[in-house]
Design a protein around this nucleic acid. Sequence first.
DNA 1: AATGAATGAGTTTTCATTCAT
DNA 2: TATGAATGAAAACTCATTCAT
Lengths: 195, 195, 195, 195
Amino acid sequence: MAERVADRRAELLDAAVRVFAEKGFHATRVGDIATEAGVAHGLLYHYFRSKEEVLETVFRDTWSALVAETRRIEASDVPLREQLRLFARIYLGSWLQTPDLVRVLVREVARGPGVGSRVAEIGELFDSLRRIIEAGQARGEVRPGLDPTIAAWALYGAHEEILTGWVLGQLPGDAAEVDRAVTTVVELAYAGLAA
Amino acid sequence: MAERVADRRAELLDAAVRVFAEKGFHATRVGDIATEAGVAHGLLYHYFRSKEEVLETVFRDTWSALVAETRRIEASDVPLREQLRLFARIYLGSWLQTPDLVRVLVREVARGPGVGSRVAEIGELFDSLRRIIEAGQARGEVRPGLDPTIAAWALYGAHEEILTGWVLGQLPGDAAEVDRAVTTVVELAYAGLAA
Amino acid sequence: MAERVADRRAELLDAAVRVFAEKGFHATRVGDIATEAGVAHGLLYHYFRSKEEVLETVFRDTWSALVAETRRIEASDVPLREQLRLFARIYLGSWLQTPDLVRVLVREVARGPGVGSRVAEIGELFDSLRRIIEAGQARGEVRPGLDPTIAAWALYGAHEEILTGWVLGQLPGDAAEVDRAVTTVVELAYAGLAA
Amino acid sequence: MAERVADRRAELLDAAVRVFAEKGFHATRVGDIATEAGVAHGLLYHYFRSKEEVLETVFRDTWSALVAETRRIEASDVPLREQLRLFARIYLGSWLQTPDLVRVLVREVARGPGVGSRVAEIGELFDSLRRIIEAGQARGEVRPGLDPTIAAWALYGAHEEILTGWVLGQLPGDAAEVDRAVTTVVELAYAGLAA
DNA sequence: AATGAATGAGTTTTCATTCAT
DNA sequence: TATGAATGAAAACTCATTCAT
């Protein structure tokens, strides 16, 4: 029974991601999600309070996984360059794994009502990146004068914009290009930060 | 008379930027813009075909100015580090000059609906940044192996995310912080790119 | 088993009266009744065809008891003044016995939608009151010129409006006030009708 | 211009009364009112905030007129019997003047959300009736022991129930019957109250 | 140029009712 | 009996856009 419920909920979330990715959150009608999931639209309201909550859930599920992975990288005992590579692999690699999810997150997350409620969770990722940089400074791997907070935002932005390029179809996004992007971003970031 | 027209149009655009910045494009009603501008909402349709066109106009006016400035930097005969500093000053400095405009561009333009129609113009800026990097490689200032296209996107993203941090209220955005951000981003970028 | 059924049905009716009294018929969801009764909402449809039928049942059960009591008064061999007092005691006294039921009847039944279907039963009460007045005229207790039908409606209305005052919280409705209301209405009615 | 606006508003109110009278408030869709008034449904929202507000307006306009008339009667220097007759004429006579309005008020006013906000205004009428009775007591026309508040509610209820009889089609409501009802109610009430 | 009354397409959400289990 | 997932009709309300004045 609980399994059934989880299934339906998951089906609806999957369907929502697909439709949000294609038409965008605002242009998506609740009925579109239901149709994509093969259920009546009323059912969506058994599992979610509103269309907005569906997006919130998608965001939270994905983002908390990303934060968890980033913290694992932060905790890992490897040199900065390796940490940067791991992060780039996970973050940019998501384009190959779950392109629709990337489309949705890149386009919708910083926008619309409810950004406020997401900002706190977004902050957790930046905090982790900042601590990675600070730890690098403590180990002498990163230039001491650099502002770690600003550097963390810049670092994240470098990654996100590349995802954006793929989402907008402005950058080629096949597997080889993703590899090349990982390499390029890691080189840029490491050289940029290194002492 | 032509001046009057220009005035009214400009007033409406200014009002629109203010309201878009406060409530976001979707939550803004045409009547809100008109009220903010002190005119009847019907008048907006003398100057613009639709609410969408108002946003388009805001984007195009701002973006083309930014592209022009970037091209001037590209054409200028100064070292890469100076070019990066000029770009960061203009781009990040806009937060102090026209914060509402930044809010709108960061939240609505780079991702929102209708990006499709703006992508070509967005591309011009990236092209210019790419050529700056390529020229740096030609002069031996930039590492030769680096992919200039990906680097241009990463470079732009680093800047944009800092604006985003200010827009979301997650980074302190006073004049001193803007200066510090310019310094930090230029250092990061120059070291990241330099041969 | 039959007892069980009767129990469940009665529980649901009781719960419905409580919820109708609090939120009104239209604002009450079937789920509210079920929750109040501690069962799943689907179960309600084993005992009633619809939400409407629940209200109908509440009305019919209550009203038929009231009609029966009124007919008993009608049949009783006591003077008019005593008959009026008995009616007032039963009718106004219900406020102390079953205030929620009074709330529902006053607000939903006498006027609400679907009165049409209840009008016949409502008429039985008025008929009984009319015959009480006519009998009074036959005995010489009631002024002969008075229209018994109109007088019956007026008499009933006098009682109902006092219930309404209590329901709306506009008249104090404690036990002492109920007594005082009985006395007042009986005096008014008796003096109004008496030859 | 202001005249036009007033017209449209009044047209919509008239239409609403007609439709509410026929189908009841809840069963009436906003579109029904608009259709009856010959306009698009959206226009209703230029003049009223909601369907509810339309009913509120109907109630307030009517009720305040009734309160004003009752106060005029209260202030007039005529014997109690004449005051009762004037009230009955106005109140019961409304059935001949504006039957739809009566239908709406009788059926909807004491119900639905927003009763709370109407109760205060309803109280004004009862206050006026109570003062009429108290003044009668002061002049020695009304029995001294009688509770004037309860008597006022009973008096009003006697009238309202007769309107209800007409609305429900249970009492014949032609002009002759209205006259007879006025006579009957005045006799009942006067005899009921008189010293 | 300017107004604002008028239009009507568009969409979320609610909730009574059904029915498989 | 009992549950609650699933359905889908229904409707209020919003608001961009038009257009007569």
